[in-house]
Write a protein that binds this DNA or RNA. Sequence first.
DNA 1: CAACTTTCGTCGGATGCTCGACAGAAGTGA
DNA 2: TCACTTCTGTCGAGCATCCGACGAAAGTTG
Lengths: 388, 388
Amino acid sequence: MRTSELFDLLRDGRPRTRSELARATGLARSSVTAHVDALARLGYVAPVGDAASTGGRPASLFALNPRARLVAGVDVGATHILVELADLAGAALATARTDLDVAEGPEAVLGWVVETVRALVAQQGVDAGELVALGIGLPGPVEHASGMPISPPIMPGWHRFDVAGHLRERLGCAVLVDNDVNIMALGEQRTAWPEVDDLVLVKVATGIGAGIISGGRLQRGAQGTAGDLGHVRVPGSEAECRCGNLGCLEAVAAGPAIAAALREHGLEVAGTGDVVALARAGSPEAVRALRQAGRDLGEVLATLVNLVNPSVIVVGGRLAGAGEELLAGISEVVYRRSLPLATEHLRIAASTTQADAAVRGAVALAIEHALSPDVLDAEARELAIASA
Amino acid sequence: MRTSELFDLLRDGRPRTRSELARATGLARSSVTAHVDALARLGYVAPVGDAASTGGRPASLFALNPRARLVAGVDVGATHILVELADLAGAALATARTDLDVAEGPEAVLGWVVETVRALVAQQGVDAGELVALGIGLPGPVEHASGMPISPPIMPGWHRFDVAGHLRERLGCAVLVDNDVNIMALGEQRTAWPEVDDLVLVKVATGIGAGIISGGRLQRGAQGTAGDLGHVRVPGSEAECRCGNLGCLEAVAAGPAIAAALREHGLEVAGTGDVVALARAGSPEAVRALRQAGRDLGEVLATLVNLVNPSVIVVGGRLAGAGEELLAGISEVVYRRSLPLATEHLRIAASTTQADAAVRGAVALAIEHALSPDVLDAEARELAIASA
DNA sequence: CAACTTTCGTCGGATGCTCGACAGAAGTGA
DNA sequence: TCACTTCTGTCGAGCATCCGACGAAAGTTG
């Protein structure tokens, strides 16, 4: 039995007595004591008072100590950056954001991230060493294993830039890099659908993308480009796309495409934001356009449902905040076009976390690493050696 | 260090000396001896002669003993059943097949399987207890965890039939049940692409389906229906499908659809077999039809490439044996329609194993279970207790 | 054939994890 | 207040695993 196995029981934050843990692990109470002591000395676990007496001396309760370490989550968008400091339970301690264009390049963007993270940590009044892991999402294809963006279309100067190494060197903590839609999917799953193992998050904004969690794991594919919905062909569409092909989903259902369609109706619509505003105001044209975008999305998602067979599709991104129409259009087509067996238990829902999803996912990625069995058992071993 | 960890080093079949194993594991040579002895007593490992002397007593070599146990693989098709007995290296020891319709129902089909497996094992002259695991693929959606088919369209009477339990009870071995296309994908990956972690197998025959291996794991989805390509909509097609929808891939690119198209050209084509025969004979109509089927498949596979980002697509099924045209049509469209980044290192190849792929995958599934750390360490522990 | 080299098989001791026992602490109930 | 209950902390014993050492075995070299 490893110390980390016992810790896994306490990860949920619920306080437990030693006897409970002994029953759950099959160990003797004295062995549980040894493991709990080790975890307590590392700080990961702390006593939280006594349980109610059952007629004798009350048992003392132990629970995850969220403040044992700090982690950070970073969401780098096309034109903004969001940083969040969180504890090990995922509770946000401090946030910061700025409007910085990702096209400014890695040095500028990551420079701001480093400064901001350092400032937020200092502001918590703790040592910089308390920060043990940082998760970061970037708006483009990322090779997760190496922590580098690969030929990202909207990130000039980032190709094969060693993001993980750059941040690790300056912040002295583990760094996990992933695609921004992937971390949104992770964030949604962890906050809103914890019991779901097969979830797809679709982000609909200036671009369109999907994060796929299957069998409880993020699917990244061979080059880290899995889930790229934007340039999938929509049956029946011949719209020209900036990628050079015809009929791409982005060319009909993304923010700019909808805006262009509304302009043809004589409406004054500059970009995605105006589309959302119009729809919220109840403009019939905007509502109709969103419904149609939903149907086009539905055509592609119907394919995705057949291929991936998720149990939940979450729709996020700025356009998801424009009302029910987009979701209604999606549902209409998906339930008609996908296999009955695959849609039988399928739920389609709007994102609840929205703007936070990405940064929550980045935090989740960081916590996952910080509390991984490898890291934990290594620390426990070090402690044993030091105290001998 | 578990005994199974050391065994993992020997799984590839290459003979090794104790010193080599000691270096690889970091253990002392005497500790390696203890583990190797345990494995040898269980039969999984056996001495295979001596290494060349380096100036002193030659070191003795140990290697996986494939004959330590037997496994079985079963491929249940729509109208045939294939059974293969194999050793732990995956080498076939005996095979049997019959033409039995899966619609005859589970009792008839599984009855034949049980009889045949028993006969093959007896024919090997070994005890029935030597058979430790059986993998079986069924032509429909399967809930892998419970080992039951779920609403399979072409398997009346199989819905929620406890295939795993039925076989386990009668054969006394572990039973792994999966979809037939999934096990084909596993078979292809294990035999032809062992180093590839992201592989998609497309089966094109009477129906069309895909088995998706991503991150080294079979993707089954929430209900076990992942990879269902057959009823994905093909852009530009309005063909009526037996499922009730319009434009399904099966309605244009599967065997029956191609046969129907050729009949319209006045050719005498009854079914899939005739299509293959015509194409092989060089009929221009058949060749053209297959090329077009390939393009239609390519449209759908282009989507799959964007969503899943595999590094290899293998095309199997009876129609893949009709020449290069199908593959050419697929490649033509996929490389044009998918994201450049996703196709950069993508390979599209014809299945090499063909008829064997499914049964090879079933065998692989069985071996995987038989040699899993859990099973191995449990046996090692039992041995330790028995010998004390 | 003898000296040398390298591995083999075995064994005792060290280490680390686990268990059960026991006395003391901290509650409850009459 | 006192008997009773239940948990806590600690400790020695048991057990498995690992290591290094030793003489014997089995080659090579001159």
